[in-house]
Design a protein around this nucleic acid. Structure first.
Lengths: 348, 348
DNA sequence: ATTAGCACTCACCGAACAAGAGTGCTAACA
DNA sequence: TGTTAGCACTCTTGTTCGGTGAGTGCTAAT
């Protein structure tokens, strides 16, 4: 039994109809709606074959057919038509996304906003993972008698600052010295390595007050470094889940929302995905908690190097054609936008 | 008809029973469970009175009684017993909250985490509103040829930095000069006023490159200032809503989640509440979208001055006694913790 | 190979019904 | 006069049951 032309056509019709209607589809409706010159009975025979081949399932004896993961896979890989964004859509994306590329974080956040707006799904954007990032310098800045700001700047441009309340007063001289010593020691070192380096405190012997200062600042310095290694997750459109019929069940909605609210774990899953446009459907997902979802992610580049991610998560029944087009358009624009200095133009 | 002792006792029993069970309570059950030496019939008479007085309602003829907003109000003001935190509870709060007060933002985030954990509700924490905050200095730091970090430090210690991608290269000399000019112009000015001040650009006439630099940086400077004036909202435990029977209805859960996800609006509502422990119940809330909820907020102080907020939101049927105790304990600890420098000890 | 016909299967819907919890009222009681 | 027992009544909740409709699988005819 092989997948002849007609079977493909039927499968295509079933998948795309189900994606829009969320209702199992029967032979009669199919024949009527897609008038393909064959009778319901014939379609039934073909559908039975397709079911045997694993492309369709029955929710129960005698309801219409529903596509399986395998069917979605085939649909995504071979069957679906490319969705072309209209000029208005492109215009809208570009105007919201590209007008102020200067502020990186905001741009990324806007990307997530746009994506959920266009797809009516839950969207997310991740800042780049900067494993190789190196420390550029450290600044300790005065605020008031017992408060300083610890500022760490990495070569990538990532900055982190932490307001630190000290147990006792400090002198400007001491914090400047400490900044310099720390910068001297860690400049050019990979952020991820610094924790494992021995903490150099040769000033400790010199001045007792400096030692106390360092005692407060160093632990916070390390935890701030950890923060810098984390990518940031921007989520948007989580409540869109409520307008999806599959999630009319309170229990399912709960599971979904708990999943995306486990930000740490969720981020980890996203970070570990490959580059490029990646679609994983239903039980193709290795994570137990997203076996009922499909996940589409794509990567954007900054100066052709570092990669961040952009994507959506929703039910397996999603508009793969439109979504991939939108995501691709957005990541392409981001990548070129962030490559004004002239990064390489390699492409898969 | 007046609220005699017995009526109060009955009301008290109804409210506290309903808070735990979420079920309308009838005269028989009440008499059995709280064996107060009066028969169901008598209780029925009293309940009828209480209903007439507006303290109770009937969901329908012949189901038990349910407390009204007015009843909760009375309960909260006069009837409820003070909940004393156990030593373990206190210990747990203090250890999670007070171990690293140095990192302000993290501490506030932990406060929200703790609060939702203790109350099984949706909790939130707000950083202080710093309307009077003044600019301390501005720093523009180099990252790479076309990227700088714009850093703004306020007198309160609040820091904001934005990674800015410039359209063309800059020189260190120019960004240093621009930092100085900007600091000179805006130092000591209230953040909220700076936008309305005329933007001083006397350097523009001098050097053309400086003008271009300023053109990119100034708009971002202003929008960053706006960000600094906003308070940050830390939300936690939003999915707790799913374990509350009242929200087993998908429609209600949706409305609730959309409400708290409107972060801007939600924050605004919270910011505008009075200081101290404030409880608003059901339709006491002026905001249409939280008429079915109760909201408890309390304020913490930093050096006795600036105030941030901490609170929970949930169904009107919440454990007011425990929640207020927990919140109060937390804000008290935060306030004293943040007052190490020795702020005034005024109290309401 | 295709199709008409037919018996069969389920989910879904609404009606009917019983059970249970609770009320309001009346009349008796202390 | 306040309290209580008794009782009829109300309304929700859960269950059962039959009808309806969409859809299937199989068989026999085309």
């Amino acid at each position: 039994m092989d997948l002849n032309e007609r079977k493909l056509k039927i499968l295509q019709a079933i998948v795309s109809d189900f994606i829009h209607s969320a209702e199992p589809i029967g032979s009669r409706t199919l024949s009527r709606k897609y008038g393909m010159g064959i009778s319901p009975a014939t379609i039934r025979n073909e559908m039975a074959d397709l079911e045997e081949m694993g492309f369709l399932t029955h929710p129960y004896t005698s309801a219409g057919r529903v596509p399986s993961t395998k069917a979605y896979r085939l649909y995504v890989d071979d069957l679906m038509h490319r969705y072309e964004l209209s000029d208005e859509e492109k215009q809208k994306i570009r105007s919201k996304l590209m007008t102020n590329l200067a502020e990186f974080d905001k741009t990324i956040e806007h990307a997530a906003n746009l994506l959920s707006e266009f797809t009516n799904l839950t969207s997310f954007a991740l800042t780049p993972k900067q494993e190789e990032d190196k420390l550029k310098y450290i600044n300790i800045l005065p605020v008031d008698e017992t408060t300083v700001v610890l500022m760490i700047v990495a070569e990538s441009g990532k900055v982190s600052n932490t307001v630190l309340k000290l147990k006792s007063a400090y002198t400007e001289e001491h914090i400047n010295l400490l900044s310099k010593v720390m910068t001297y020691n860690y400049k050019g070192k990979k952020l991820s390595d610094i924790r494992t380096l021995e903490i150099i405190r040769n000033f400790e012997t010199d001045i007792e007050a400096m030692g106390r200062l360092a005692d407060t600042i160093l632990p916070n310095f390390l935890s701030t470094l950890d923060d810098m290694l984390n990518v940031d997750l921007y989520l948007d459109g989580v409540t869109n889940i409520f307008s999806i019929p599959e999630y009319n069940d309170i229990e399912k909605a709960k599971v979904f929302l708990e999943m995306v609210n486990q930000k740490k774990h969720f981020t980890e899953v996203l970070v570990n995905r490959d580059s490029g446009v990646i679609i994983t459907i239903g039980d193709e997902n290795t994570e137990e908690f997203m076996r009922e979802c499909s996940l589409i992610t794509a990567t954007y580049r900054i100066n052709g190097k570092l990669v961040g991610k952009l994507g959506v998560i929703g039910p397996t029944r999603m508009k793969y054609d439109k979504i991939t087009s939108v995501i691709e358009y957005m990541t392409d624009n981001l990548s070129t936008g962030f490559a004004l200095t002239g990064g390489e133009e390699d492409e898969h």
